[in-house]
Simulated scan of single mutants.
Amino acid sequence: MRYQDQLFQQRENALLESARQLFQEQSWDRVTIAEVALLAGIGKGTVYKHFSSKEALYARLVLDCSRRHLSELREVANQASPQAAMRRVIRRAFEQLLADPLQAELCLLCDRPAFQERLDAPYREQFIELEGQYMALFNQLLRGSFGELSPAHCQNLLWGVEACVNGVMARIASGGFAHWAEPIELDAYFERVTDFIIAGLQGQAAALQAAPALSE
């Protein structure tokens, strides 16, 4: 790698790390590009050589972390039996988010239509590509657990899982249950939500597979 390319990459990494540090210290919507540049020791104008907007900086943080998480989830899936893989992947996904509440918060932010509309096309395309990769893993897990399902059936099942995962992300981003009158231990919460997802998938998959036979 050329020296100039190395320098460019070092600056970019410094900006991403500075942004992450600032987001952990204060609300993401209050952080400015100028603050990120100052903490990174880089001129504000130079930031825009790397990121066209603050939204692009958010998106890059989420995309990079999500790709690392996906790589780990694939390993978890491959190391488990087909019957156990779905549960282990779901639980690990929750643990990943709990270990990095900022990622949960930023994922929810980046999923907003208004946010996506402000992103440059290449970033929107990367989110679509990443969604497809997660969907491919989900389809693999479904086939291992329930046999062949049509793409439409897999999509229907994904909607329920997505709703549950988004709920967990929102709970983690809000700080868990510490403020409740009777606090709930998060590990037990994850286990019950995972039970709910698995039971729902089992019931819905069976219903979808039986539907053609019932209509004949």
Rank of each mutant, 00 (worst) to 15 (best):
Y3C: 07
D5S: 15
Q6C: 06
F8G: 06
A14M: 13
A19Q: 02
A19E: 01
Q26L: 02
V31G: 10
A37S: 06
L39I: 04
G43Q: 08
K44N: 11
V47H: 04
Y48P: 01
S53H: 03
S53C: 08
S53P: 07
K54W: 08
E55H: 01
A56I: 02
R60S: 11
R60K: 13
L61T: 08
R68E: 12
H69M: 10
L73I: 04
P82F: 06
R88L: 14
R92N: 06
E95L: 14
Q96R: 13
L97K: 07
Q103R: 01
C107G: 08
C107D: 07
D111Y: 00
P113S: 00
E117V: 11
R118G: 12
L119K: 02
E125F: 06
L130V: 03
E131Q: 15
Q133S: 11
L137A: 03
G144T: 04
L149P: 11
L149F: 07
P151I: 06
W159S: 14
V161Y: 11
C164L: 01
G167A: 11
M169A: 15
M169L: 10
I172Y: 05
S174P: 14
H179Q: 10
A188E: 14
A188V: 07
V193R: 03
I197Y: 07
I198M: 12
G203N: 11
G203R: 07
G203D: 07
A205L: 03
A205K: 09
A205M: 08
A206Y: 10
A206C: 05
A207W: 13
